[in-house]
Nucleic acid binder design. Sequence first.
DNA 1: GAATCGTGATGAATCGTTTCTGGGATCACG
DNA 2: CGTGATCCCAGAAACGATTCATCACGATTC
Lengths: 343, 343
Amino acid sequence: MTRRRRPTMKDVAQHARVSVSTVSYVLNDSGPVAPDRRNRVLDAVRVLEYSPNESARNLKRRSASTIGMVVPELTNQFFAMVAEGVQRAASARDVLVVLVVPDATEQPEEKQAKLLRSQRVDGVIYLSGTGSMPASIYELARSGPVVLVDEQIPGLELPAVVCDSRKGAREVAAHVLAQGHRRIAVIGGPPALWTAQQRLAGYREAIAGAGIDPDSVPVLAGDYRQGSGAALAQQILAGPAATRPTALICANDLMAIGAIEHCKAVGLRVPQDVSVVGFDDLPLSALLTPRLTSVRQPAHDMGFRAATALFDLLENGESGSIGLLPATVQLRDSVAPPLGGAS
Amino acid sequence: MTRRRRPTMKDVAQHARVSVSTVSYVLNDSGPVAPDRRNRVLDAVRVLEYSPNESARNLKRRSASTIGMVVPELTNQFFAMVAEGVQRAASARDVLVVLVVPDATEQPEEKQAKLLRSQRVDGVIYLSGTGSMPASIYELARSGPVVLVDEQIPGLELPAVVCDSRKGAREVAAHVLAQGHRRIAVIGGPPALWTAQQRLAGYREAIAGAGIDPDSVPVLAGDYRQGSGAALAQQILAGPAATRPTALICANDLMAIGAIEHCKAVGLRVPQDVSVVGFDDLPLSALLTPRLTSVRQPAHDMGFRAATALFDLLENGESGSIGLLPATVQLRDSVAPPLGGAS
DNA sequence: GAATCGTGATGAATCGTTTCTGGGATCACG
DNA sequence: CGTGATCCCAGAAACGATTCATCACGATTC
């Protein structure tokens, strides 16, 4: 399999007996060219299997037709769904998506900023992670357009596509309370993340609405990963049954799953002994036993819109208002009234 | 937020009072330059926040420091894990990964080939999908290096990182048979895919090894997706209990999950009424009830090795032999002896 | 018949790098 | 003191595309 030199515009021009500029004009029809010559060029392109060198094109055009997408981890299905949405929007416009997964073992900050500055991407879509590191965002935003997904930075006025986490959180918490639970605990996300704040705020609203002092319910901060869900559940459920919470409100599904796994491990039944709810509504959550009650975020759509917003930003310099996407409660089997009735 | 023109090498050269070539020499230390001048350049780079224009660099170098990765869908955790492995290997070498998800709504073939020909990527890592379309592979391989993951094309001699699907399949089927099952059925993958063929071959070996005629067990072809698992399970389990298979061997976890969901829907208990095994050992499979017995593929590692092989190919022109990765059976709760004993 | 205009084609400059070529210092040495 | 040899450095030619300025040539118009 010998790979020969790829044909360039000059080759095409020679083959079609025209000048390179003419070739360029017909390729992006950006100039007038007579039909016969146009056909000659098109023929030459076909027989030589010419395809333009995008590096050269990008150099001249000062744009890369490429966007970056930083995702904390792909194995989290929520991120995977968002990524698919981004990909779809980009693919429709012939824009490439380069994947950036900040490796924990190195400083991603400088790397990401450098990426943007090197003009290999025109803009970036940023999914904030399981940790908190808005520092790199500042770097990024300073040197190119950035659109946030499911995150907002108080200081900056970055465009962001988010959904109404607060409302979703309020509703799912209200559902738990409506079942009669009075001793509840919250397994929250990393306090530095906007989503964690929003969801907690929603929970507190619902709790207050049920006539309970929000400050009286324990709130533990997890990291949105399964392991922390299990660890925090253990911590919360350690006490005697009489004072132990009867419901766990988890700020995402992964932590809810961890909590459920812990319950199973120590012989607590879900939902009879303890009710659990999550957030995100991962596809797998409906497959669990019990099927997890959660709050669905339109992940795919969020990714799609974020990409669309980024393209608007790149083309028109301004992104259309993005609005607030809905977050809808999915009622399933992981919530039941507390055994002893209201306490 | 006004974005000013990015500094170029010329700016750096002027600021450091040297020539552009000197700047280039110090930046990739490819030439001798006196210490003081070197420092002047480095300083200038720092104060101007210079970072090289990769498009220009790529144009000159005839390489993009970028690879493409085509994955059928990201929401499949197996692919997500492979993708993470690829990303990690690439990131370690400062290579970018562009994500290509062949959209079902358009012809991906020409698009992928064009991508490679446009020199925006140096090579491609190809994860074969839920369908079968080796046609695009030929196009791809003709114009650039390609490494396959979990797939092999009989005709071509493409480098591929695969694991011993056949052995894994044989062992998991043997386990099922060892429990006493005699009426079994196979829900296979798309017959055109190498993995489907390998796994089926492994199953048949085990079946023959148990003294059963492999041709007597029904084999239905699915598409590796959950839906087809459910549909085929319905088809298989439709008959009366006396003749209905007591074990379903599924060629991947997603279809196994679909099958289990169908069983639940029609009131069949797993594993008491019907045993089910999968393949891939997705993280979620251990969370199901019953926990799914499956065959683990080292997905992350496969991605990592594939990327490494591609880099070898690009640098040395030859990829080190890749070997066969292990596929190990994970015994869990979805298999039990058949109710009536051996039939 | 000369001036004007529009169409269609071309040459050349340019984008920001890398790298080859050549030439001025500096030094050792006969 | 002249002659190579050694070291650094600057200039300029690529890389492959886009695009501006120019120009040739018929067709209109007065």
